[in-house]
Amino acid sequence: MTKLTLGTQPFLLGFEQLERLVERAAKSGNDGYPPYNIEQTSDRSYRITLAVAGFTEADLSITLEDRQLTIRGRQSDDPEGRVFLHRGIASRQFQRTFVLAEGVDVGEAVMENGLLHIDLTRHVPETVVQTVPIKRSGVK
């Protein structure tokens, strides 16, 4: 079976970067932690919500690089001298990534009741109609 790629389609010109974005998203290595929701809040806006109970704002970082939104969490180590009889609440680090489409901007991030909300806005580009003149070939 042959793998069908966007670059091999003669009617899809200039979509090589889209193919690379899809491959990068597939390799992002998200392991399911922390759980998250993505909701559409309007025609042009979205909200990503991550369940980050036990993390503080200082334990979290949000970066955007080359249209890849990365949320990292790293809790500080427990203070010395604590003795746990049972430890069922894991303190583990995480990295969750989302590949954003061109024209999607990251808005504010808010912590509320153990949930991290990140608002996104999609800008719809204006439709541009361009007429291309046809020149006559140099006939002699």
Results as ranks from 00 to 15, higher is better:
Asp31Met: 04
Val22Glu: 07
Arg44Leu: 15
Phe15Arg: 07
Asp31Ser: 10
Ile38Thr: 07
Gly14Tyr: 05
Glu23Ser: 13
Gln40Ser: 10
Asn30Ala: 13
Leu60Val: 04
Val52Leu: 04
Thr56Glu: 09
Pro10Cys: 05
Thr5Lys: 11
Leu60Tyr: 03
Leu12Arg: 06
Asp43Phe: 14
Ala25Ile: 04
Ala58Leu: 05
Ala26Glu: 10
Ser28Glu: 07
Leu13Thr: 15
Thr56Phe: 01
Thr49Tyr: 00
Leu4Glu: 13
Gly14Leu: 05
Thr5Leu: 14
Leu13Ser: 10
Ser42Met: 09
Leu50Val: 02
Ile38Arg: 05
Arg44Met: 10
Ser28Gln: 09
Gly32Asp: 07
Arg20Leu: 09
Phe11Ala: 06
Leu18Ile: 06
Gly14Ser: 05
Thr49Arg: 08
Thr2Glu: 15
Phe15Thr: 10
Glu57Ser: 11
Thr8Val: 05
Tyr33His: 08
Tyr36Cys: 02
Pro34Phe: 05
Ser28Arg: 10
Lys27Cys: 07
Asp59Ile: 03
Thr8Ala: 12
Ala58Pro: 00
Ala53Ile: 06
Val52Ser: 01
Thr49Glu: 08
Pro35Asp: 08
Pro35Leu: 10
Leu18Trp: 02
Glu39Lys: 11
Asp31Arg: 08
Glu57Lys: 11
Ser42Arg: 07
Thr49Gly: 06
Leu13His: 09
Leu6Arg: 09
Gly29Lys: 05
Ala51Lys: 08
Leu60Gly: 02
Gly7His: 04
Glu23Gln: 13
Pro35Phe: 06
Phe55Asp: 01
Asp43Gln: 15
Leu50Asp: 01
Gly7Trp: 00
Gln9Asp: 14
Val52Asp: 01
Thr41Arg: 08
Glu19His: 04
Leu21Arg: 13
Ala53Lys: 11
Gln9Tyr: 11
Pro34His: 04
Leu18His: 06
Leu13Phe: 05
Arg24Tyr: 00
Gly29Ala: 10
Gln9Arg: 14
Val52Thr: 05
Arg44Ile: 14
Ala58Arg: 12
Asp43Ala: 15
Ile38Phe: 06
Thr5Val: 14
Leu4Pro: 03
Val22His: 05
Glu23Ala: 13
Glu39Val: 14
Gln9Pro: 00
Thr5Phe: 03
Glu23Pro: 00
Ser45Gln: 11
Ile48Met: 01
Glu57Leu: 06
Thr56Lys: 11
Asn37Asp: 08
Ile38Val: 15
Gly29Cys: 03
Leu21His: 04
Phe11Ile: 13
Thr5Gly: 06
Gly7Phe: 02
Gly54Ile: 03
Tyr46Phe: 15
Glu16Gly: 15
Phe55Asn: 01
Thr8Trp: 00
Leu12Cys: 08
Ser42Phe: 08
Asn30Cys: 05
Glu19Ala: 07
Gly32Ala: 08
Thr41Tyr: 03
Leu60Asn: 01
Asp59His: 03
Arg47Ala: 06
Tyr36Ile: 01
Gly54Arg: 03
Ile48Thr: 01
Gln40Glu: 10
Phe55Glu: 01
Gln9Met: 14
Asn37Val: 02
Gly32Thr: 07
Ile48Ala: 01
Gly7Ser: 14
Asn37Thr: 07
Asp31Val: 13
